[in-house]
Measured scan of single mutants.
Amino acid sequence: MEVRTIKVFTTVDNINLHTQVVDMSMTYGQQFGPTYLDGADVTKIKPHNSHEGKTFYVLPNDDTLRVEAFEYYHTTDPSFLGRYMSALNHTKKWKYPQVNGLTSIKWADNNCYLATALLTLQQIELKFNPPALQDAYYRARAGEAANFCALILAYCNKTVGELGDVRETMSYLFQHANLDSCKRVLNVVCKTCGQQQTTLKGVEAVMYMGTLSYEQFKKGVQIPCTCGKQATKYLVQQESPFVMMSAPPAQYELKHGTFTCASEYTGNYQCGHYKHITSKETLYCIDGALLTKSSEYKGPITDVFYKENSYTTTIK
């Protein structure tokens, strides 16, 4: 009895394709271990004539594949690729409408935090270190965002349907971005203890939790000093293409032309909904596939993004 075979390709990165001759009487799992086709788990399936010449994702289970996976995804987590594939199996079914010149995501599976993050990423200057993220990001900007969303979920250790947080998501993504040249110098002034300067680099240099107003941050924000008295913390120097200011959701007025974009969060910790506000020729609110415009805006804002380049204080 002759062994019926077909020729397929296996890959971990969709760049390096490895030619395989597979036995049609055995499952993919018996031949390769966990195997995925377009995100779908085909591990328990036997090869079919229609699979001839198709590319299958496999887990990096030998040295060659491990090197290829690390170079593309910059992670050695053995569960990463499987999590990416199972997320992709959902995100490829989502709709990605162009809204006001940006790629958004039609609401499904509690994905409003991903839509808000995706919209924000198209408006701030950011370059990702893992080629996987950078490639998928370019495709997302062009309207094909399924891979990018699935990668975000995998890097953030999230599953489809789980509630997510924009600030946490951005923080994970910033860790995989090139923020080497970003720098922030802060000064804390206390009447009792004097003053202390701190220099922050990388992710810490672009994120701040405690106030939404970048102007206020430049002037000074009140913080408790270690001595128990009130101290003032203010920005001395900022070198970065953008800054992200966050605070627990509270009524906040966004003035046209003073910011790049913002995240609105309605609801409580267990259950809520994100919308995205962007400042173009007027203010726009993007909620999944829905767009509304207004000249002014007041609502429960939790993150505001500002364009920056270089700032030095005039406070002496």
Rank of each mutant, 00 (worst) to 15 (best):
V221F: 11
A140C: 07
T302H: 06
L133H: 00
E125I: 00
T91D: 00
M85A: 03
A250I: 15
T258S: 11
D109K: 15
H273V: 05
A154H: 01
Y28N: 01
C271Y: 10
K127C: 09
S263T: 10
Y36E: 00
N147K: 12
G228L: 02
A117V: 15
C190G: 02
P34R: 07
Q195T: 13
T19N: 12
P97A: 09
N110L: 02
C182S: 08
T103M: 03
S86K: 13
F70W: 10
Y252D: 08
H176F: 12
V188E: 08
Y172I: 12
L163V: 15
K7R: 15
I301P: 08
Y73E: 00
L291F: 10
P78F: 08
Y155K: 01
K201W: 11
D38G: 11
H256C: 11
S279M: 05
Y72W: 11
V22L: 08
N110G: 03
E239V: 11
F174T: 02
K127E: 12
E264L: 02
A262G: 05
Q251R: 08
N309V: 12
T232Y: 11
C225Y: 03
P249Y: 00
V304T: 05
A146Q: 07
I286P: 07
G288Y: 03
Y57H: 15
G267H: 14
L186F: 15
R139S: 13
N147Q: 15
E239A: 06
D62Q: 10
A69K: 03
H18N: 12
V8A: 08
N110R: 05
G288I: 00
L17H: 14
A132T: 01
H74W: 05
T266V: 14
A289S: 15
C156R: 04
Y284R: 07
T55M: 06
Q197W: 07
L126W: 03
T282A: 12
T266M: 05
A177L: 06
V42D: 00
V243R: 05
V185W: 03
M85L: 15
W107F: 15
S295I: 15
T35V: 15
L235M: 02
K255D: 03
Q31R: 11
C156L: 10
Q31D: 03
Y214P: 07
T169A: 11
Q238F: 01
L291P: 08
L102I: 02
N49L: 13
A117N: 05
E168A: 08
M245I: 05
P47V: 07
P248A: 14
V185L: 08
M85G: 04
F56C: 12
Y274G: 01
G272Y: 11
F148E: 01
S104F: 06
H51G: 01
G53F: 13
G164E: 00
V206G: 06
Y138G: 15
K255Q: 13
Y214E: 10
G257E: 14
I277D: 00
K218P: 04
H90Q: 14
D180Y: 07
A40D: 14
G228F: 02
L118V: 07
M245K: 04
L291N: 09
G143V: 01
T198E: 11
Y96V: 01
R4C: 11
G299S: 08
F9V: 10
L254K: 05
F305D: 04
H276M: 04
Y284C: 13
T302Y: 02
Q195F: 09
T292H: 14
G299K: 00
F128D: 01
C261Y: 03
P78R: 00
W107I: 10
S171V: 12
D109W: 01
I301M: 04
F259C: 03
S171D: 00
K218N: 05
G220H: 04
A250C: 06
Y72V: 04
G53E: 11
K158G: 02
E144I: 03
N14L: 07
Q238N: 05
H51M: 07
T116M: 05
M24I: 12
F128S: 01
K219H: 09
Y172W: 10
V203T: 10
N110E: 04
L121P: 05
A150P: 01
Q20S: 12
P34A: 02
T19D: 08
P131K: 05
G299F: 03
R184N: 04
F80H: 02
H256E: 06
L291R: 07
F242C: 04
G220C: 01
K293E: 13
L290V: 13
C156P: 00
E144S: 11
T169S: 00
F128V: 01
Y311K: 14
S79H: 04
Q196E: 14
D41E: 06
A250F: 15
K158F: 05
P248N: 07
R139D: 10
A132M: 06
Y265R: 07
D13Y: 01
R4S: 13
M244A: 03
V166Q: 02
E68G: 08
N129E: 15
V243W: 03
F148Y: 01
A231L: 04
Q237H: 12
M26W: 14
K233M: 10
Y137G: 02
Y172T: 14
T19G: 15
V203Q: 09
V188R: 07
T116V: 07
N111M: 01
V189M: 10
E68F: 07
E296P: 07
K275T: 14
H90G: 12
E264Q: 04
K255C: 12
A262W: 01
S86L: 12
L163C: 15
P47T: 01
T314W: 12
G161R: 01
C193L: 03
L235Q: 03
T19P: 14
I286R: 06
T35G: 02
G228P: 04
Y96D: 02
G228S: 04
F242D: 06
L133Y: 01
K298L: 09
A108C: 08
C156G: 06
T314E: 15
P78M: 07
H18I: 07
E71F: 11
R139P: 04
A69N: 08
P131V: 01
E162G: 01
P47Q: 00
K255W: 05
T282S: 12
C193S: 03
E253Q: 15
E71P: 05
S25Y: 11
T91Q: 01
K201C: 06
K293I: 10
N61E: 12
Y72E: 15
K255H: 15
A108F: 05
I315K: 13
T258R: 11
T120S: 15
F56E: 02
T260A: 10
N129C: 08
L59E: 14
T232F: 09
Q134Y: 05
I6R: 05
A145E: 00
L283V: 10
N49P: 13
N268I: 09
F242L: 06
P47K: 00
T312M: 11
